Amino acid sequence: MNHRQTFDSVLRDMPKSKAAYLARLAHELECRAEMEDRGHLMYPVLAAAAPGIEPMLEPGEAADIATAFLLREAEGIAAAVYSPAYLTAPGEVLLPWAERLRADLAAVILDRLAAGKLVPPDQRTWRFRSDRGDVAFPYGDEEDEEL
């Protein structure tokens, strides 16, 4: 079984920008010597975690975090991947590991946001105006009733 293909199949159902980010992350992981004999453990976890991974860190930095996570948790992930339960419900078996990987990534993202070293990619300013007579505007300009 090619575990990278399992990961790549998850990317097909994602928005293109997020899929491209995760593909770059996977490429960064492939280039690491530490992953040579552990990739079969990382890709299923990465596939399970992919929908919740936000593309806010550089792929190389996210790969550093994922590599450290795998080195720390390899034994537990291996037990999950080689368990009989993985054959019947791989998503359920890998969910705790996926959540831990996302937590490691989120901790770095939140620390950087708090320190002002990272800016969220979507900086929208919402402005509502009622002077155009837009019926979709939620607040009407009806005459105030005198009490």
Rank of each mutant, 00 (worst) to 15 (best):
L22W: 01
S17I: 10
M35T: 13
S130K: 15
R38Y: 11
L87R: 15
T67C: 11
A98D: 01
V93F: 02
T125P: 08
D122A: 15
A107C: 11
H40C: 09
G60H: 04
D13Y: 05
A107L: 12
E73D: 13
S17T: 12
E146A: 11
L94S: 04
L95Q: 06
I109E: 03
T88H: 09
Y43W: 13
H27N: 06
A48V: 12
G76R: 09
E73H: 10
Y82E: 14
L110A: 06
E99A: 06
A26H: 00
R72M: 12
T88F: 09
G133M: 12
S130I: 15
V108Q: 01
K18A: 00
E146G: 09
A114S: 09
W126A: 12
P121N: 13
D64K: 05
A103S: 08
A48N: 14
L41M: 11
L147H: 07
V81R: 06
V108R: 03
E36G: 06
L101H: 00
R129C: 10
F128D: 08
P15K: 00
L70N: 05
P120Q: 10
R102S: 01
A85D: 15
A98T: 06
A19P: 00
P55G: 10
L105K: 00
D13F: 06
S130H: 15
P84A: 03
W97F: 14
L113E: 04
M14K: 00
S130N: 15
R12S: 10
M1A: 04
D13Q: 08
E146V: 13
A103V: 07
L11R: 03
E36V: 11
A50V: 10
L41T: 08
A49H: 00
A136F: 14
G76E: 12
